[in-house]
Design a protein around this nucleic acid. Structure first.
Lengths: 322, 322
DNA sequence: ATCCCTTATACTCACAGCAAGTATATGCTG
DNA sequence: CAGCATATACTTGCTGTGAGTATAAGGGAT
């Protein structure tokens, strides 16, 4: 053991064999017209990213730089998601490790300056099973359920079979269990393990298997998006981060629709309003808009003063049940 | 902008100027006799750590390797904490970046094999203001409060003064606010900003300022510990991670004392028992122990079956208020 | 043997939060 | 003016849970 360590140290001093490249990857979110979107670049299905370089003052500023350069967007709210090491990637001359540090960023769509080749894609094109705003989407019961049953039954061991099916049941709310919108990552990992998404069977031989209809992404970017969605869905329940996605002035229904877009489920309107108002998260501007149709809606703005307060009390949104 | 990117790419291809060293750092936790402990090495006050090397299959296995080598401990539960880039550290010949990936690990004290120079230190030697199990510790009102008032008043700008004092009030529960045990990181950042801990004034000129009595740690390891404590205090409320710290068989009071040790506050006993039992987190072994004194306590073991279940419902502990 | 101490275990009560339903107000459109 | 769509207000009933009290069971001291 100690010998191994010494050998490692020597190697490192001599040729820096253990040096690593670091990539910064951004999952940038905006909500427009009740549709939650992810910012992509190039031919689409690729997240903005770039190497962490010497000139970057910090990880965050490096990320901001790359996103701004590739998409023209200045980021506001940023939060670290996860760091992972790609397995066995081969560098140009010699083997080299690559580490990816992923971030979640919240912004508004309008802020686009001069977008070269970037665009906004709806989350739910990549995760059609995640949008339960109009009830359980057909793909869950018609496609995922039978495929996951097949997958669970595809092993000899009875214990493994049971365990697989139990995981699927919990994650997707089969058998009258209730849907939990925060399990986005677990659901993605299941469909990945079951070989139901394209990136899970890339480079495999044999006949192309039957996939669940959904858009794929480059490399493991779809996993990053799943991680980000899960984090965001969890976070909106106890921190007032939704407002990062709102314009400066908005109606309560617009706010509700935004939360619903993120959570992928509907919210009881009276309860939503009561919670928002009793927490004093917003204040009236005094104006109203008739653009919504029906009775004019009062306009509100976010009370930035509560940002500190809410550290302690936590913010609450009526997303507990359904 | 684009020029900059191109130049960066060229540099990188030529001399790999942007290559980076990656350090893995572990915050290893165990609880013994109602005292929450952190695993340290060397002269103490240093967390186990080591460089991420080519031979490591993954970040986690690299971390496990270093901890096992330096302390003789095999880690069980591991969770990523945070990744940060050290500012402007200078390498041997040329400037080089160092990235640190920190992890939280939960284990049991007994598992120590042949510990060379490692030891367990109580959390609360590094954070004496965090232990509220016997009421608010004196250091909070006698030392921290006056020092933070000084710090807040140490600026001209009235707005900044108010904002500083408001942050302190919220974080430490001054002025009849209630104590929130999850704000460990915010509290550490405050005492750091206020220059009340040793590492905040390292390398500064001038007279040594009056510090808050507490043990310091090497580099920024104390910040990592603060991050880990905050994460753990939050996590025990909704995931059954406490059991990673328990022996296979335990009494309910031992379980409660462990949670209290982590949270730094006391829990109402009947409510704790009710919550644990109604969630079916544990099952009776059928045996009892008299070692606790008083009426013999039933022994329980963790029901591993709930590990999956609890993904959906979430685990609850009565830690909401006080 | 008895008293007392400590801990375990069971039961009760009351309040707050909140999910869900219902009713009314207000403006626009055809 | 009818009908529609939205905003806004009120009510009801359940659940979770914080907090207090009571009883059981063993050990040790007097």
């Amino acid at each position: 053991m100690d010998d191994q360590a010494i050998r490692l140290r020597k190697d490192r001093a001599a040729v820096n064999a253990d040096d690593v490249k670091v990539d910064l990857i951004a999952f940038v979110v905006a909500v427009n017209d009740s549709e939650p979107c992810v910012l992509t670049i190039g031919q689409a299905d690729t997240l903005p990213s770039g190497p962490f370089a010497l000139e970057h003052r910090s990880l965050q500023s490096g990320l901001r730089g790359w996103v701004e350069q590739q998409t023209g967007h200045r980021l506001g709210y940023i939060e670290q998601l996860y760091t992972f090491a790609d397995r066995d990637r081969i560098g140009a001359e010699r083997q080299q490790r690559v580490i990816s540090i992923s971030y979640l960023a919240l912004t508004r769509k309008e802020q686009a300056a001069g977008p070269p080749k970037c665009g906004w894609q709806s989350w739910y094109e990549y995760f059609p099973w995640e949008d339960h705003r109009s009830g359980t989407p057909p793909v869950v019961l018609d496609v995922l359920r039978p495929r996951l049953i097949e997958w669970a039954n595809g092993v000899r061991d009875a214990a493994t079979r049971r365990e697989r099916w139990q995981r699927a049941t919990i994650a997707f709310g089969f058998d009258d269990r209730l849907w939990n919108e925060e399990l986005t990552l677990q659901r993605y990992e299941l469909v990945y393990e079951a070989g139901l998404v394209q990136e899970a069977v890339r480079g495999r031989d044999g006949a192309p298997p039957p996939l669940v209809p959904s858009k794929s992404m480059v490399a493991d970017h779809r996993r990053i998006v799943a991680t980000g969605i899960a984090r965001l869905r969890s976070k909106i329940k106890y921190r007032p981060v939704v407002f990062e996605l709102m314009p400066t002035v908005f109606t309560l229904l617009q706010l509700q629709r935004t939360v619903e877009a993120l959570a992928g489920r509907l919210i009881h309107k009276p309860n939503f309003r009561r919670l928002i108002e009793q927490q004093e998260l917003v204040e009236e501007t005094g104006e109203a808009t008739t653009e919504t149709g029906g009775r004019p809606a009062k306009l509100f703005r976010f009370r930035h003063a509560v940002l500190d307060d809410r550290l302690i009390a936590g913010t609450k949104l009526p997303l507990a049940r359904g």
